[in-house]
Amino acid sequence: MSDETPPNAIVVEHLSKSYGSKWVVRDLNLKVPTGCVYGFLGRNGAGKSTTIKMLTGMIPPDAGQVRLLGDEITTISPKTRSRIAYMAEGHPLYSWMSIGQIVQFTQAFYEHWDHKLVDQVLDHFELSKKQKCGRLSRGQQAQVSLALAVAPDPELLILDDPTLGLDTVVRREFLEALIQLIQSRGRTIFFSSHVLGDVERVATRIGVMVDGVLRVDCPTETFRESVRKIVVGFEGEPPDFPGCEGLVTWRKVGTELELVIVNWGPTQQAIVESLEPRWTDVVDMNLEDAFIEYTRGSKRSLPIFHRENHRVDRAAV
């Protein structure tokens, strides 16, 4: 038996990009193991799309380097690129081409092309090769893009918000097909998404970008289990929270104190109990709740709700 661990499909080292004085991505370090389905999360403007475009060589970084399947992206060979599929946000296709024409056009660039698989995917989504790309719905464009992406049997698939703008049913179908087609072959998928439910169902590992910085990089389950919301009740006005290790944010809601804490344990519990609350409730969260609590800023509380909000420097999980 070999002890060798599989090489990383994606290696990112100290990747940075700024526009003027604003850092869009700052000192990003990331390793995505081969065979992993990596969900890349973040709010709008967090730097997800810029990162993905730097990964694919569409945007040159200011600093740092990216290696895909062992090749540095700035000098990547066509042969390595042919092993990587990229689906850009919005699924851009040539509107004047029919599906048959765009299949034929794309196929011309690849040595290996699975005609049978393309036909199967198009058939599965009930798409005719005679349909014009410009007349397809957004969901159908995503389906055609998927067929084109999987046909060369890529080892790595990079998807920039592939389900953006798709309705629930199409989204579910798309993801199921994607998983069936790619992951069953042990391929690596790196995808960004706003739909946390999709990520929870599909991703084995997640990364969370906050203001251009990768704050979280861990297995999905670990993230979900690490982030806890603690609701602490008092008789009157709650006191200010003194802070503790792993504290993400805290706020006062009426007579309650709400805390979001990473790795809730006896140390944090002791600090909470020192405030002599009437009661303490530890709330389990799904990925979406955990993500929202982890990433939302202090702007979300409007004065009308009489909430006080306090942000704390977060530590990566």
Binding site: T56, G57, M58, P78, K79, R81, S82, I84, Y86, A88, G90, P92, L93, Y94, S95, T106, F109, Y110
Partner: peptide, 12 residues
């Protein structure tokens, strides 16, 4: 049309 993203990722 943003098709440059589609085109420039081809192995060429």
């Amino acid at each position: 049309r943003q098709t440059s993203l589609f085109l420039l990722h081809r192995p060429m």
